[in-house]
Write a protein that binds this DNA or RNA. Sequence first.
RNA 1: GCCGGAGUGGUGAAAUGGUAGACACGACGGACUCAAAAUCCGUUGCCCUUAAAAGCGUGUCGGUUCAAGUCCGACCUCCGGUACCA
Length: 826
Amino acid sequence: MSVQITEDYSHKDVETAAQQYWREHNSFRVSADPSRPKFYCLSMFPYPSGRLHMGHVRNYTIGDVISRFQRMRGKNVLQPMGFDAFGLPAENAAIKNNVPPAKWTYENIDYMRGQLQQLGYAYDWERELATCHPDYYRWEQWFFTRLFEKGLVYKKEAEVNWDPVDQTVLANEQVVDGKGWRSGAVVERRKIPQWFLKITAYAQELLDDLDKLDGWPERVRVMQQNWIGRSEGLEFQFDVAGRDDKLTVYTTRPDTIMGVTYCAIAAQHPLALDAAKNNAGLAAFIKKQENIKLAEADMATLEKEGMDSGLRAVHPLTGEEVPIWIANFVLMSYGSGAVMSVPGHDERDHEFARKYGLPIKQVIKPADGSDVDIQKAAYTEHGILVNSREFDGLNFEQAFAKLVAHFESKGTGRKTVNFRLRDWGVSRQRYWGAPIPIINCAACGAVPVPEKDLPVLLPVDVEFDKSGGSPIKKMREFIDCSCPKCGGKAERETDTFDTFMESSWYYARFACARYEGGMLNKSDVDYWLDVDQYIGGIEHAILHLLYSRFFHKLMRDEGLVSTDEPFKRLLTQGMVLKDGAKMSKSLGNTVDPEAMIEKYGADTARLYMMFTSPPDQSLEWSDAGVDGSYRFLKRLWKLIGGFKAGSVKVDAPALNDAQKDVRFKTHATIKKVTTDYDQRQVFNTAIAAVMELYNEVTKFAGGNDIQDGAQNQAVVQEALEAMVLLLAPIVPHACHVLWNHLGKQGAIIDAKWPAFDESALVQSKVNIAAQVNGKLRAVLELPADVTKEQVEQAAFADETVKKFMAGMSVKKVIVVPGKLINIVAG
RNA sequence: GCCGGAGUGGUGAAAUGGUAGACACGACGGACUCAAAAUCCGUUGCCCUUAAAAGCGUGUCGGUUCAAGUCCGACCUCCGGUACCA
């Protein structure tokens, strides 16, 4: 099928023709070819929620633009696509519509695949994968059993949100204002045994390797660094008066230890529970803490509340007794669940002390000798120790070292490195996920499922009830099994994996998506990995990207991959917002791109998404503006369609001034657009630059007969070719057709990216801004090779400049060559 | 609360410390048309003005600099994340 260019722009005909060509030629199918440089471009795969939303269109257009650009630069480009198919929304849909999650998910995948194909993305569809497919999750199960053997997973009790009415575990998202979203019951916390991956064993490496990621945005690296949160401090113990217990605490400020006026412990701390045994008030206070949602944001914004436990800690240096308070801001899951409190030099401790009338003691003063009133506000800077006996006069570093030495010599404390990062809890009490491949045997304990019995298949023929509980938890035929070790009766684990598990290694599986001999095929992986360019939403800056980095290191240590980091370069696209909030299924404010594609076509949709804001900024959706992108495509179509391709080459020395100007603009545009695609990764300015070139060409064509004068035609042909090549990654369908209309053989996807001609960029004149006291007063047109003295001469001769300097004497003159002169006068 | 980011015309935005508002959208005026749509041409930061010229102007306040949207300090508002949404 071919498209007649003489007709008006019909996006349907154009897009059908281009997509048919790509399909018939298998244009985007790739394989490892060590003789060619590769480029692996990956966009974060979607959750199959039903339909694509604008965030997807934006994300995948960015990836496709980069992929097509790299292909034109001569790379063997891998761009795959798949579906992050396990997750909570499928279960919600199951309850709501009475349809099994698997059916719902696979139908959504089929629909969304069609939408992606409509948008003309250059994917190698042979590699498509869905994480809910046993061929995928079987390897994840296998890998988990390997980690089990290596001691990198363990089981421990951890808290969950519990809905006492529906008798089910709730995700944080399902707890609204402290109540279960379906039942409305006040949530409780409940402790259940869960599996953890030892990400903390890799904390130091995850931190150190951030330095290698120079292709990542600084903000993401900083966020990860803060999330890992390495600190050095002192761990030591308080004796508890009248008891054998010790109270272990960690502090990054041992220099403030003489300022301790109380200790604070978590409500779940063993000492707290013990103290509550014969104190009804305490028991009630502890009980109240169980009705708080398990989210850091909720806990950290709570009004700080506490209660004296009645127990007293013995200060290890002074022997003084200080009260032990139970406080709602101390979390059992962090460190030891207990802290020393120094209200004079810690804001949170200060607030708490003021509220409950606890003493505030100054032990640090500013190094510059100035006074601070610590009764009014905590002084949290490093300074000089006071009221600290033999430590008086020391600075932070000296005090730190001396106190560590003191405790270490007595054997009651030690210097430790602490991480904020906690081990990764991967157990979910949900149905729609990969079954955790563990069998619980009364005699042998937790036993991993042997490799020959993998995968543990998730039953897909299930029914949900309104409570939202996982159906496999009641399914005896799933649960009952025999122990692989002793052969006795045993029960299968019914928890499933956190869905972050699947998304932590899919990038590697794409290199060998159909490989059946193992989790990964080394030769494919070694050719394609690392991912050269990864693109996804900024909301994944921490969790997904940190878990993937961790998994990559786990796979490296298993010998599956050869590198240290999965993603060389990262582009974090901003949110697509609607009415000021993130467009998301859960908020119900999504805009379906389908209507836009139907009315305007994929090229317009792509152009609009790329033109309307730079990729890393959030984009406020509006329907207005799409029309403008469509009109530009129509104008481009008309301009090129009305042009008769010729074969006359540009004869640079023979050009007149107007022709030279067109040629200058063409090559300046190639230069700018190439930088925008390659280094800056901003596409809105690249498009604007091509629009400027369009405007220049139409202006030129309006005043010159481009079909008659041979060089007129030659410079216009050169400009039009550049425009089509430069826009090809963004609007590939239209450019596919226009390319051949310009007399070019072959498909534009196989054309070479244009190079600019430095000699075309040489200009004879420059505009120099003339300022007086920093304010623009004139623009001087001067020869390009003008000297500093000549610039000054011209500026001082200018009438407007003279006027603004009347009666003043020159104090200083600054000349920025080729740009600007600033005369400082007064 | 904590960590990270953003704030520029009516709107989306542009600007290696060096001419603020490129490129678009919208609006207004005009051409074409019986008329409308489409298309084409022009104007368009604010203020004063017939016009020219001047003045003001990048969330707020202060600072550094010959020069600040850009750098520094304090603050305000909004957005993302906050470990079971993905």
